[in-house]
């Protein structure tokens, strides 16, 4: 069985600090915000694979529902809850207000 090893960024900065961090992660997004997943950082590959199976994969847009006590996001119509130390490993870029999100308007070929 595959067992992820976690050597993640712990503690240090408090949530919400620095509104424009150099590399925004899911953990920086505020509740209600929609963000697009860009990639992963320092996350074991098998755990990445697991997150991707739920739809947390580069290119997808997700909505942040809560950051406390843990991070909760909505992917399609599923709510996923995970600890901040995972959220800090998921790189995102904010979806600007005007760009329609992929969830609501699937692209037509």
């Amino acid at each position: 069985m595959l067992i992820p090893r976690f050597r993640l960024h712990r503690g240090r900065h408090r949530h919400g600090q620095g509104r424009h961090p150099a590399r925004p992660t899911l953990w920086h997004a505020s509740p209600g915000q929609e963000v697009t997943i860009v990639g992963f950082e320092a996350l074991p590959p098998d755990f990445q694979h697991y997150l991707q199976a739920y739809g947390l994969m580069p290119g997808r847009t997700v909505r942040v529902l809560a950051q406390r006590p843990v991070t909760i996001v909505q992917v399609e119509h599923t709510e996923l809850a995970f600890e901040p130390q995972i959220a800090r490993c998921i790189l995102v870029s904010p979806v600007s207000e005007k760009t329609p999100s992929e969830e609501t308007n699937p692209p037509t070929p």
């Binding site: 090893r5 976690f6 843990v70 599923t78 996923l80 809850a81 995972i86």
Partner: peptide, 12 residues
Amino acid sequence: GERTPLMVELPP
């Protein structure tokens, strides 16, 4: 052994 961080699906 290490602790695994939480990751769960919340059903409607």
